[in-house]
């Protein structure tokens, strides 16, 4: 009986240790970006950003600055399917340290939707904020992708 239990316990320990590897989760960047590219049409591909999201015991915000050209029309496509828990995407006209920044977009009303888009023109910058909710059960992680296209 001991001969069977010992290897099983060993395997369980291996899995437990792997689960505590500081949130080292693998994200398929190529697959996520290929999906985003399909939703970008008919806009031309400009750039894309993969952001690693780590859920912690307190709420955190990760920000990506996106410079744009004022005379152009843009579409920004988000792919959030590699996130184990939904984050709120907010787009602002100024960075998170600015006092009077304006919220241009929020994914709050979109429920659990994993793919959505935002169109913008006549701005020189947008700031994409991922509001990452707190988690009480250990640390886990995922990644979010957005892609920018111009017309």
């Amino acid at each position: 009986m001991t001969k069977i239990i010992k290897p099983i316990v060993s395997i369980v320990i291996v899995f437990v240790l792997m689960a505590f590897q500081g949130g080292d989760v693998l994200c398929n960047s190529k697959e996520l970006k290929e999906k985003a590219k399909m939703a970008l049409e008919p806009y031309k591909y400009d750039s894309s950003e993969l952001t690693r999201i780590l859920y912690k015991a307190k709420e955190t915000v990760k920000e990506v600055e996106v410079p744009l050209f004022i005379g152009e029309k843009y579409r920004i496509v988000f792919e959030l399917e590699a996130l184990p828990k939904q984050v709120e995407v907010q787009i602002y006209n100024k960075d998170k340290d600015s006092k009077n920044r304006k919220l241009l977009f929020s994914s709050k009303d979109m429920g659990d939707k994993k793919e959505f888009q935002f169109e913008v023109s006549k701005v020189r910058h947008v700031y994409v904020d991922y509001a990452i909710p707190q988690t009480e059960t250990g640390s886990y992680s995922g990644c979010a992708v957005f892609m920018v296209g111009y017309k």
Binding site: D24, C27, P67
Partner: peptide, 29 residues
């Protein structure tokens, strides 16, 4: 490899820079 591993630094701000193509497009216009 199709995958990227996760970094644990959550305080940095990142920058999504435009493409050379878009700069040339704006310039041509």
């Amino acid at each position: 490899s199709d995958t990227v591993s996760l970094s644990t630094d959550d305080n940095e701000v990142s920058y999504n820079l435009p493409s050379a193509l878009q700069i040339a497009y704006v310039f041509k216009k």
